[in-house]
Design a protein around this nucleic acid. Structure first.
Length: 601
RNA sequence: GCCGCCGUAGCUCAGCGGAAGAGCAACGCACUUGUAAUGCGUGGGUCGGGAGUUCAAUUCUCCCCGGCGGCUCCA
């Protein structure tokens, strides 16, 4: 008698119900625990507790066992509506202050008179657990597949997300409609772990961290730097074709620059400060736009000189809290492929479209599918977070929306996601295991030009206020590379691979031919790793695979005789023997054309 | 920054009050190899740093540094 698997919309109910089971189990095991809230999430649910004494991973099996008991008992839900005063009394008696606070807030913010509670009913009709809850449960705990959930982790979480309030312990549970889906999810997590850029960065010798240098300060090895330079070179190629010019700025500035821009007031916490020996306040640059404005204002600009398009790949520094740091995704020194276009308002749309083109071309070439587009707008209810007037925002946002519509982009709008100086077009990439990452951004800035008094002299000889467009293609190279490394699991497209071809002569009598091949490949600009014959072929193949070298060329008697190479393609795992000339020709072509997959084998 | 966990050889990890270990890597020797680990040998560690408890600390306690999972934050 197969029970029908829960429907997709039921999954939410299932997870929510499971959170009740979790809380009930925890209270049974540790009766003094204070309970708070437990919502469903993308892959399961969590519940936040304040424990009397800390629990650990070792307690997971005990809790899970208790939860299964609740499921097997087939506990049901019964709702009760209580007057808020009675509800408060109830929770006060049970010494559950967080619940009391939740009710008080409901009264204050929503003016409710009554609140709904759900009780779990055990096999003998007894109440096993009561929670303040809006509802949305399954009928019977039995409907939860007892083998399709797993407590995955513990984490700290602030009560109501407020860092000044109590720190609670969050228990995460992965939960699905079937064991198969749970297993798939756990497998996906394993896969994410396998391709973790921090692990691959070390294995592929791309970057490192040093305790002496400090947290969040990545050091790039020769191979990693090569990868960065190749990607950045490509972005520059796309920009150069569209009239950009490179500029260079110092990495520190007087604080007055950021007082003018507004960054000092808004982000002073995150600035690395420097006091000169004469007592002047400087800081490391956390972004580049204010510096670039000073290049613009260094001359009086005629409308004929516009747009001025400045590009610079340069490192910025932000004093992030240590707990926020994560591999390359969140660092204290990061390199932006930054660009600022200074143009007339009437030129903005065309410039934005050109950048959009660069973004599309770049991401398609480096192996991402179509990007999702998000219009990040201001939050009209929180104007204090932004510079400028509501009218300025309205007009800039209307402009961006029009561009997106004209371009027939499939976009969504996100109020409250704007930068403090203007709305943005954000691009979101989906990686090969389904995760989404915000990558490129185009921002229409109507505020910095006001603050820095940026203008051009127009046809009438009058000063005309200009606008500024901020654009980053990779954004932060560090963050981009973390996504890129994980997306490709270290198997980079041939043109980006730090080492493109490994040479494996079978025995010493093949060295002569192998060196000849080496010289030939080097002469056409390919990056080579020579693996001499002293190790076994099997071992060298293994090494080459681990380093994700796209082509492994084996050369023995057969190849030396007919001047060919035995090619092992690391992406496809296939082997073919091709004439040397043909290998060189096709490989050079693949690199020039920035092919995603090496075409031989 | 906060909560929880962790830090032992270049890497992955065992040991956890009583003379620091394994596998891989490195180095040496032999092997001359046909598509993911040839064999033998050698070197390598103030057990993250400091203080305390103890006859004795890699092991227990505290402080600091660093990492991991979250929270908060993210121009």
């Amino acid at each position: 008698m197969n029970k029908a698997a829960p429907q997709v919309d039921d999954l939410h109910k299932l997870r929510h119900s499971l959170a009740h089971a979790l809380a009930q189990a925890v209270l049974k095991l540790w009766p003094g625990t204070k309970i708070t809230i437990g919502p469903p999430i993308d892959y399961g649910c969590y519940y936040d507790f304040l424990f009397e004494t800390p629990i650990s991973d070792a307690d997971f099996p005990v809790i899970e066992k208790e939860m299964r008991k609740i499921i097997h008992q087939g506990q049901t839900f019964r709702s009760e509506t209580l007057k808020t005063s009675d509800a408060k009394k109830f929770w006060n008696q049970r010494k559950q202050p967080f619940k009391v606070e939740l009710i008080e807030d409901l009264v204050k913010n929503e003016g409710v008179k009554t609140v709904t509670h759900y009780a779990n009913i055990g096999p003998k009709g007894e109440e096993t657990f009561v929670d303040l809850c809006r509802g949305g449960h399954i009928e019977n705990m039995k409907d939860i597949p007892a083998d399709a959930f797993k407590i995955t982790s513990l984490a700290g979480a602030y009560w109501r997300g407020d860092e000044k309030r109590e720190q609670l312990t969050r228990v995460y549970v992965a939960a699905f409609a079937s064991k198969k889906e749970l297993d798939e999810y756990l497998q996906m997590m394993e896969e994410a772990k396998r391709r973790d850029h921090r692990k691959l960065g070390q294995e592929l010798d791309l970057f490192t961290f040093s305790e002496l240098v400090g947290p969040g300060l990545p050091l790039w090895t020769p191979r990693g730097t090569l990868l960065r330079d190749l990607l950045d070179g490509y972005v520059w190629e796309l920009r150069q074709a569209r009239g950009y010019q490179r500029v260079t700025i110092p990495h520190i500035t007087k604080k007055e620059l950021y007082e003018t821009s507004g960054h000092w007031q808004k982000f002073s916490q995150e600035l690395f400060r420097i006091t000169t020996r004469e007592g002047h306040q400087f800081c490391m640059k956390p972004m580049n736009c204010p510096h670039h404005t000073q290049i613009y204002v260094s001359q009086q600009r005629s409308y004929r000189d516009l747009p001025q398009r400045y590009a610079e790949t340069t490192t910025c520094y932000r004093d992030e809290q240590t707990g926020e740091l994560h591999g390359l995704s969140r660092v204290r020194s990061f390199t932006q492929d930054d660009a600022h276009v200074f143009c007339r308002r009437s030129q903005a749309a065309e410039e934005i479209l050109k950048i959009w083109e660069i973004v599309d071309t770049f991401y398609a070439t480096v192996g991402f599918g179509k990007l999702r587009v998000r219009l990040s707008l201001h939050d009209p209810d929180a104007m204090e977070k932004y510079l400028g007037t509501p009218e300025m925002w309205q007009s800039a946002e209307t402009e961006l929306r029009k561009i997106a519509i004209d371009r027939q982009a499939d976009f969504s709008e996100a109020p409250g996601e704007a930068a403090f100086y203007g709305p943005k077009v954000d691009f979101i990439a989906r990686d090969s295991i389904g995760r989404e990452w915000q990558v490129a951004t185009i921002q229409l800035d109507i505020n910095m030009p006001e603050r820095f008094n940026l203008f051009c002299i127009n046809e009438e000889g009058a000063e005309e206020r200009i606008v500024m467009i901020h654009a980053a293609i990779m954004g932060s190279l560090e963050r981009f590379l973390s996504i890129f490394i994980e997306h490709h699991a270290g198997l980079f497209p041939l043109w980006l691979a730090p080492v493109q071809v490994a040479l494996l002569p079978l025995a010493d009598i093949h060295e002569h031919y192998a060196h000849e091949v080496e010289t030939m490949l080097k002469n056409v600009g390919l990056r080579i790793h020579y693996m001499d014959h002293t190790e076994s072929l099997g071992k060298r193949i293994r090494e080459g695979e681990k380093l994700r070298i796209p082509y492994l060329l084996v050369m023995g008697d057969r190849e030396a005789t007919d001047r060919s190479v035995a090619v092992r393609n690391v992406q496809t795992k296939k082997q073919v023997t091709v004439p040397l000339e043909q290998f060189v020709e096709r490989t050079v072509k693949d690199v020039q054309e920035r092919k995603l997959v090496a075409s031989i084998g």
